[in-house]
């Protein structure tokens, strides 16, 4: 897969570059002229009220929602466009798939494959997309399940796991693709409160480990202040303010951010 030399836009210090992204669902203008750069290895936490478009950012990067205008680059390669005689044109499915290999996403509702065991969930994509042998994929999946603390659940079906366990399998499943960019969409929001910790612990480990670029939409401010390099406050389709977790969480400039944090923290 993806052996063809990609079109390089010099951007060594940018892993995800979103340029003038606009996206509407009917009347609802969800993303407005959004510019957003994420550095390689950076951990970015996106906060904001529901309906602010923060989840849509991740969905655009995952190609689940196509923007109406603007460009997205992953590690210097255009995601939705390719160069044709020096002109940017809409990319074909093949090009999108090649670039998308660098990205994976974990969902609020896990979206595990219910008819496959934990280990099978982790093995399918590495075999079908990366061309790993069954043995290689099994070893990789087993190591990752071990890493997320599910070394004893290889052969369980998702229906036999708790929410926290399901989400950890889902994280392992995405990690098995060794993406450069991992997107986490409110991955603890659907969990019982006592199960949130086990998933956050895995995320914190991942964040501290370093090399992978992570973008997380979450309401877990404790996690944000511990693990994030940067926090983005999102409102009405664009970044309202951004900065280090200390800055945004303790000393936000905008009233809107203050109100939002107060609501979330008192929750």
């Amino acid at each position: 897969m993806a052996t063809r030399e990609p079109e390089i836009t010099p951007a060594a210090d940018v892993m995800v570059r979103m340029n003038q992204i606009n996206l509407s669902f009917g009347e609802n203008h969800v993303l407005r002229d959004l510019d957003l750069n994420v550095a390689p290895g950076e951990k970015v936490v996106i906060i904001g009220p529901s309906g602010s478009g923060k989840t849509t950012i991740l969905r655009v990067i995952m190609t689940l929602n196509r923007p109406n205008s603007g460009t997205v680059e992953i590690d210097g390669r255009h995601l939705y466009h390719e160069k044709n005689n020096g002109q940017l044109v809409d990319a074909g499915e093949k090009h999108i798939r090649a670039v998308r290999t660098d990205v994976s996403m974990v969902f609020q509702h896990f979206n595990l494959f219910p008819h496959m065991t934990s280990i099978e969930n982790t093995m399918l994509a590495p075999i079908k997309v990366l061309g790993l042998s069954k043995e290689e994929a099994r070893e990789r999946g087993a190591n990752l399940l071990e890493m997320v603390g599910l070394g004893d659940k290889y052969n369980q079906y998702p229906g036999e796991l708790s929410g926290g366990q399901k989400q950890r399998v889902a994280i392992a499943r995405s990690l098995a693709m060794r993406p450069k960019v991992m997107l986490f969409d409110e991955v603890t929001s659907a969990l019982d409160p006592e199960l949130v910790g086990e998933v956050l612990a895995v995320l914190t480990d991942l964040a501290k480990e370093g090399t992978m670029t992570m973008m997380l939409v979450t309401h877990e401010m404790g996690f944000a202040s511990e693990a994030a390099d940067r926090v983005l406050m999102f409102d009405a389709g664009n970044v309202l303010e951004e900065g280090t977790p200390e800055k945004i969480l303790r000393d936000p400039e905008h009233k809107r951010t203050q109100r939002f944090l107060k609501a979330v923290l008192s929750h």
Binding site: S104, M105, N111, F113, V129
Partner: peptide
């Protein structure tokens, strides 16, 4: 969506 996220 999971299939897209895994690039299947």
């Amino acid at each position: 969506e999971a299939s897209v996220a895994l690039n299947l």
